[in-house]
Amino acid sequence: MESWRRNPLVFAAIALPPAFWLVLFFLVPLGIVWLYSFGENIDLVTIETTWTLENYRRAGEPEIFTLFVRSLWLAGVATLVCLVVGFPIALVITTSSPKWKSWLLLLIILPFWTNLLIRTYALLNILGSRGRINEALGWLWEMGDGFLTIIGLGQLNLLGERFTPLTLLGNNFGVIFGLVYVALPFTVLPLYAALERMDRSYIEASLDLGAGQLRTFFSVIIPLASSGIVSAIIITFIPTLGSFLTPDLLGRGQVDMIANVIERQFKSANDWPFGAALSFILLYATFFALAARSLLAGRRGREDAEAF
C-alpha cells in the first residue's frame, strides 16, 4: 500500500471517476432527501427546507407507529423462520460429500438469481384462493369426504358442507410466506460459511465426552456458529424490513410495510417531506442493525467479523 502523495496524478486518474459517480449520483440524492425530510410543502412543486421536525413527529402518530411495529414484526418473524429452516439446510450442505457440496449450495442459491418480481408473481398462483395450495386442499377434502361417506359418516358433514378455500393472500401469512421465500437463500450463505469454517473436532469431542446430539447442537455447534448466525440475521432482516414488492403484491394493500407507505407518499399522496422522513427512519433502522452487528462481531475478534 502506497501513499496517494507519491503518485498524485495516478491516484486522481483512478479515484476521480468512481468518487464523482458516487458523490453526484448517490450521496447528493440521499442528501436532498435528507434535507426534504426537514421541509414543508409550499405548493404543489416547491418544498422548502425549514428545519421543521413535524415530519418526524408525524411518524410517531398511532397509525404510522403501528405500521413500524407491524413491519418490524413481519420482518422479525420472517427472519426467525429463515434461520430455523436455513440452519439445518446449511448443516446438510456442509456435511455432504465434497462432490455434492457445491451443487447443493447452487440449488439453494439459484432462485436468488431469478427475478424478484417474477418469483413474487409466481407465488400469487400458488397462494391464490383458486391457487395450487387450495386446489390440493380441496382435493384432500373431496377424498376425506368420500372416505367418510364410504364408512357411513357422510351425512354428519364432519368436514363441513363444502370446501372453503383458505385465505392465503392479503394477510400476514401471505406476506411472511413471501418474505421467507425471497430471503431464504440469503440466510443460508453466511450460515454455510460459518459452519464450513468450524473445527469439527469440537463436535467430535463433545459427542465423545457423552453429550447427546441435541446437547452438542445447542451447546457446541450454535455457539461456534454464532458469528455466522448474527450475520445471517442481519443480512436477512435488513432487506426484509425494507421490502416493497412482497407486501405490495401478496399483501394486496391489506398488509402494508414501511416501503409501501413511503412509495405512496412519493407517488399518489405527493407528500415528499413526510416520505423523506419515513425513508430516513428506515435508513437509521438499517444503520442501527449494521452497527449492532459490528459491535457483536467486534467482541468476538476481527477474524469472525470478516467472515462475511
Partner: peptide, 13 residues
C-alpha cells in the same frame, strides 16, 4: 441501504 430509499432518492434527484 434499502432499495426503496435509493429509489426515492434517485427520483427526487
Amino acid at each position: 441501504i434499502p432499495e426503496i430509499c435509493m429509489g426515492v432518492a434517485m427520483m427526487v434527484f
